[in-house]
Simulated scan of single mutants.
Amino acid sequence: MTKSKLTYTALITGASGGIGLELAELFAQQGHNLVLVARSEQKLEQLALQFAVRYKVYTKVIAKDLARPESPGEIFRELQQEGLGVDVLVNNAGFGNYGFFRDTELQKELDMMQVNMVALTHLSKLFLQQLPPGRHGKILNIASTAAFPPGPLMAVYYASKAYVLSFSEALAAELADEGITVTVLCPGATDTDFKENANLEGSGPFSQALMADARSVARAAYEGLMAGKVVVFPNLKDKLTPLLVNLAPRRMLRKAVLNIQKKRQ
């Protein structure tokens, strides 16, 4: 990967681990300044120090919980107060939950919708509004291969990622003539802490042998973003998912996903 000739300021949510952390390091390696957002201020401060020493980039830390509706506005107000503009927005924060919808915790799913969809939408709106006229920008949203089929036993998570995919593609079309690109990443099972947080450890696609590593997924996302691609699949297996989904009758698809999900119990 050749070093970028342009220097951006990239705001990355969910930057303390997994794909978000790997993306932050890729941006830093290319000499871009960072605004890192996550709940853990201590982890973010450690990363800021590491990036300053290794890559000589400026890193601003903002500790916020995106499950709070006020957080996106607070983030951009803080940036405005410091006169810090953002060129690249990476909406990486998100989480899932496993179980029959009737039995799962309502508050966790409301928080999931807030983080996965509402905060992503709110941050995208604020990002576009802070761009001066004529200034180019980039948005990277993290969806999933879960965006394509229905998701029994993870109904809200799958639906939230379908929203991210549809929203991103629509926004990309709206902004195509303005020099602002929107990219959506659709990875399959990836080796992050997602599986533990969603109670998905063990069998199925989240077995160790079937998971992609976070670094390779992040690299595919970064390269796709910089190339202005709209939809990015990290590997061939992920790219086949929408093709298979489109070929299967919906009734069969619902049953197949349900059976796969049940094997995780």
Rank of each mutant, 00 (worst) to 15 (best):
L165G: 03
T190E: 12
L23C: 11
L126S: 00
V37Q: 09
S4W: 09
P187E: 04
E201V: 14
S160K: 06
G94T: 09
K108Q: 15
R135C: 07
A67W: 04
S71G: 06
R39L: 08
A212C: 13
M112I: 06
A15D: 03
H32N: 10
K255L: 12
L11Q: 01
A214H: 11
R219C: 01
Q208L: 13
L243M: 10
R264T: 12
V35K: 00
F127G: 03
L49T: 13
A221N: 05
P152Q: 02
L66D: 11
R215N: 13
D191W: 12
Q81K: 13
P234F: 12
A218Y: 06
G151H: 09
L247W: 13
G204N: 07
Y8K: 09
A176Y: 05
G228W: 01
A10R: 04
T104Q: 13
K56M: 05
E178S: 07
T190S: 14
I139R: 04
R264Y: 00
A173P: 00
F233M: 08
L243I: 14
Y98A: 05
F127V: 04
L49H: 11
E174N: 11
V53N: 13
Q80W: 02
G99P: 07
A227Q: 14
D193L: 08
P249V: 11
L244Y: 11
V217H: 10
V230T: 13
A198M: 02
G204V: 11
L89E: 00
Q130C: 07
E169M: 15
D213P: 03
A38M: 04
G83H: 02
Q114I: 10
H32F: 01
K255Q: 15
F167H: 10
S71W: 05
C186E: 00
E45H: 03
A212F: 08
I75C: 08
S166T: 12
A212N: 13
T13M: 10
A172H: 02
P152W: 02
E41F: 01
D111K: 14
L36W: 02
N246K: 12
G96V: 07
V156A: 13
Y163N: 00
R215T: 15
Q30D: 15
P242D: 06
V61D: 12
D87F: 00
P133G: 11
V230S: 07
L225P: 00
A10T: 10
G73Q: 12
T241S: 05
T145Y: 09
A67N: 08
V37W: 04
L153C: 05
K263R: 15
F27D: 00
A189N: 08
G17A: 15
A248H: 04
V257K: 02
A172C: 05
I142K: 00
K239S: 15
G99H: 06
E22M: 14
G18M: 09
V57L: 01
I19C: 13
F51G: 01
D193I: 05
A248F: 13
S144L: 10
L11C: 06
I180Y: 07
G85D: 00
D191N: 15
V57S: 03
V257S: 01
G188N: 11
L23Q: 06
T104Y: 10
A209K: 14
R264N: 12
P150A: 12
Y158D: 01
E70H: 08
L236W: 15
E178Q: 11
G224M: 11
